[in-house]
């Protein structure tokens, strides 16, 4: 294994992050360092550059290389209906309350390859709400957004996903929603009819839409505390009063002041509602 000089590696990592920000507009400066360091090391290994500095060189001089880097640094694939109790709670507790709004906007922030987008669409379809919904599925990685739009996944995952779907209270069989061919499954593209996929960077972009529900599971775990807090503020400002926020099953809100703007609907499942009385910028 390559020897690592920690002090030297810190300098290289800082320069890499700076190059990414100044040259390409992607700001990883407030990501949780341990995971970021690990992913950058992986990029060094995958591309055989030997050092982070050499990786930075390619980033600066090869225009297309940034997309490879973004792919390597972005939140990876997920599963359909991951953590079935969460989707069951969305189905049984959240959707009936959402039904009181005539139009329902849902923001899936950091949708990665789209597994949760399709899970959500299926849920809404089965509960008879889909026609009133608009789902905004955003990610900062263009390659992931393309995969999400295609909805093609390895068939080997289908069995576990079917199990998840049923545990989450599915009314049919997951196989009703995809066609299988060779080693792949393709999700029914009708599930996409009310989905808009868009490029949005939680770190640098502003409020995306007025939403009744924001889903952002296991994305904030990659952000250091100040950035986590800022993005929670972004969700608060996007949500209507009483709107819902669904985070990953083990995410901690205790170190984010913005967490105080939400009240738990189910603390164990990390489902929250935006408080009716909050004063984001002293306004409301």
């Amino acid at each position: 294994m390559d020897r690592i000089d920690p002090a030297l590696e810190d300098i290289e990592l800082e320069l890499f992050v700076r190059a990414l920000r100044q040259r390409h507009g992607y700001d990883f400066g407030h990501y949780a360092p341990a995971s970021l360091r690990r992913r950058v090391r992986q990029l060094v290994q995958t591309h055989g550059t030997g050092t982070i500095s050499a990786l930075t060189g390619r980033l600066l001089h090869e225009p297309e290389f940034v997309f490879t880097v973004i792919e390597g640094l972005s939140v990876p694939v997920s599963d359909m209906f991951r953590d079935p109790p969460v989707f069951r709670a969305l189905r049984e507790q959240v959707l009936p309350l959402l039904a009181s709004w005539p139009r329902i906007n849902i923001w899936q922030a950091g949708c990665a390859s789209g597994q949760e987008v399709y899970s959500l669409a299926i849920l809404l379809e089965e509960e008879g709400l889909y026609e009133r919904c608009q789902i905004y599925a955003t990610d900062f990685n263009p390659a992931a957004l393309r995969r999400a739009q295609e909805g093609i996944y390895p068939a080997r995952a289908a069995q576990a996903w079917s199990r998840n779907y049923l545990e989450a209270g599915g009314r049919h069989s997951l196989a009703d929603y995809y066609s299988a061919r060779y080693e792949f499954i393709k999700l029914d593209q009708r599930l996409r009819r009310n989905v808009s996929f868009a490029n949005h960077n939680l770190v640098t972009d502003k409020v995306f839409c007025e939403a009744q529900l924001v889903l952002c599971r296991n994305v904030l775990i990659y952000f250091a505390n100040p950035l986590q807090d800022r993005v929670l503020g972004l969700f608060r400002d996007s949500l209507v009063r009483g709107g819902f926020l669904c985070l990953g099953l083990r995410e901690s809100l205790e170190f984010a002041p913005s967490g105080a703007d939400f009240t738990a609907l189910d603390a164990n499942l990390r489902i929250y509602r935006r408080n009716v009385f909050t004063a984001p910028d002293g306004k409301a």
């Binding site: 949780a32 341990a34 995971s35 296991n218 775990i221």
Partner: peptide
């Protein structure tokens, strides 16, 4: 993390 706090990831 270096500040001796726990961090999670869902990397592969």
């Amino acid at each position: 993390e270096r500040d001796r706090c726990f961090a999670y990831s869902v990397d592969e």
